[in-house]
Design a protein around this nucleic acid. Structure first.
Lengths: 196, 196
DNA sequence: TCTTGAATAGTACAAACGTACTATTAGGAT
DNA sequence: ATCCTAATAGTACGTTTGTACTATTCAAGA
C-alpha cells in the first residue's frame, strides 16, 4: 500500500491555482498541478477530495469548489471554552470573513482610524473600519461623517431634527454641525491586526 | 442604440453562480444566467466585463474571474482623508479580508471573547479573536492559553525561563502558571461586528 | 508467500466547449 | 431620412473536455 494521498497539499495547490487563474483547473491542468501523468489518477484524487467535502459535483463533471476551499475559517466558541479536541473539529462551523462582515460589497469600504476620539468604544488609531455607504444611520450607530468639511468617526445621535456626533473619549466634545454634515457611511465592524 | 449593458447585474449574477456552484459558468450557462438566447451575446458581454477588469482571459478562453469578482473590499486611506471621488475610485486598492488577516488557514481559528481582562488593549466581551495555533509566542504577543486548565486570553511575557500571562485590566493580576501552561495560539487580529 | 486495496498510469471516445463568422434591430446623431 | 453603432440572435466547426474503461506497482495484512 503506497503512502496516503497528500490531501492538504492538493487543497493548497487548488487554492493557489484559483487565486492565480480565477477558476478551478481542468482535469488535465490538475494533472500538472498534482504532478500526475494520468487523467485517471486525477479522477481518483478528486473523488477523494469530493468525499472529504472540498469539491462538489457540478454539471458536466467539471471541477467545482465547496466553501471548504474558498476561504472559510473555523469558528469556535468562547475563549473560556478553549479549543476543541481533534474529534470535535469535524463538526466545527466555518466562517467566511467577508460574508460575515459585509452586507453589500459594492457599498462597503475599509478605512483606517487615525485618531483616538473613539478610544472608549475600544476603537484605536490604526484600527480598520468596515464602512457601509448609502444607508441612513440610526441613533447610536458609529458613523464616518464630514462635519463642515472635516471627516471624522463618531457616534451618531439624533434628537428630533437635531444631530450630534459624539466621541467616545472625554478629551473631545460632541459636535453639532454648523454648516454641513455629510454621512459618509455606517461603521459595521472594526478590525485590528497585530504584527506585520 | 439600445439601453446600456447591465454590468452590475451581470457581475452579481456571476458572483451568485460561483457561490452556488464553486466555479465560473460556461458560455452556455452564462447565456441562461444573463437571459440571452445566443452565444455571441455572451461573448460580447464577457468581452465588456473583461475590459472592465471583472474577468480575465485564461487557457482555452474559459470564463475566469479576477479578484474584483472574488470578494475583495475597497481599501481606502485614513478616516480623516474621507472617501474618494468617483474618479479616484478607479485606482483604489482591493483587500481580501481572509488573505489579509490569516496566514495559515489550516492553523487558524476564531474564538469569541467572554471576559474583560483585556479591555485596556481595546479588546472587549463579544469581540472575535483570530488565533493562529502551532507557533511560539514572542514577548508582548497576545495569546489564548490554558493556565492550570483554565483557558484565557492575555499578554504573553517571558523572562528567562519564567513566563507570565498579563491582563490589560487593572482589575486582574498577572498570572504565573503553577502546574501547567498550554499555549493554544497567538492572537493575530481582533474583529468587532456591530449590529445583527 | 499470497492477497488485497490504494495509488498510480494509459487510452479512446462522446459530449461539451469557445471561436468566428453572419445577421437583425433600434435608438441616437447628423 | 439616413447612417452608425451597440446590443442582441443564429450557426458550424475545430478543440478541449470528462468518462469509462484497462493496466501496473507496491506495501500492509493474513
Amino acid at each position: 500500500m503506497p503512502p496516503a494521498l497528500d490531501i492538504h497539499g492538493k487543497v493548497n495547490a487548488l487554492r493557489i491555482f484559483f487565486r492565480k487563474t480565477g477558476r478551478p483547473p481542468t482535469f488535465r491542468e490538475a494533472m500538472e498541478l498534482f504532478g500526475y501523468k494520468s487523467i485517471a489518477s486525477v479522477q481518483f484524487a478528486l473523488k477523494r477530495l469530493e468525499k472529504l467535502g472540498y469539491l462538489q459535483k457540478g454539471a458536466s463533471g467539471r471541477i467545482a469548489f465547496t466553501n471548504r476551499i474558498s476561504g472559510d475559517i473555523r469558528l469556535l466558541g468562547s475563549v473560556s471554552a478553549g479549543f476543541p479536541s481533534p474529534a470535535e473539529e469535524e463538526t466545527v462551523d466555518l466562517l467566511n470573513l467577508t460574508d460575515f462582515l459585509v452586507r453589500r460589497r459594492e457599498a462597503t469600504y475599509i478605512l483606517k482610524v487615525d485618531g483616538d476620539s473613539m478610544i472608549d468604544a475600544l476603537i484605536g488609531p490604526g484600527d480598520l473600519l468596515i464602512v457601509e455607504r448609502g444607508r441612513t444611520p440610526k441613533n447610536g450607530d458609529i458613523v464616518v461623517a464630514a462635519v463642515d468639511g472635516d471627516w471624522t468617526v463618531k457616534y451618531f445621535e439624533k434628537n428630533g431634527r437635531s444631530v450630534r456626533l459624539v466621541p467616545a473619549n472625554k478629551k473631545y466634545n460632541p459636535i453639532e454641525p454648523n454648516q454641513s454634515l455629510e454621512i459618509g457611511g455606517i461603521v459595521r465592524a472594526v478590525i485590528r491586526k497585530y504584527g506585520a
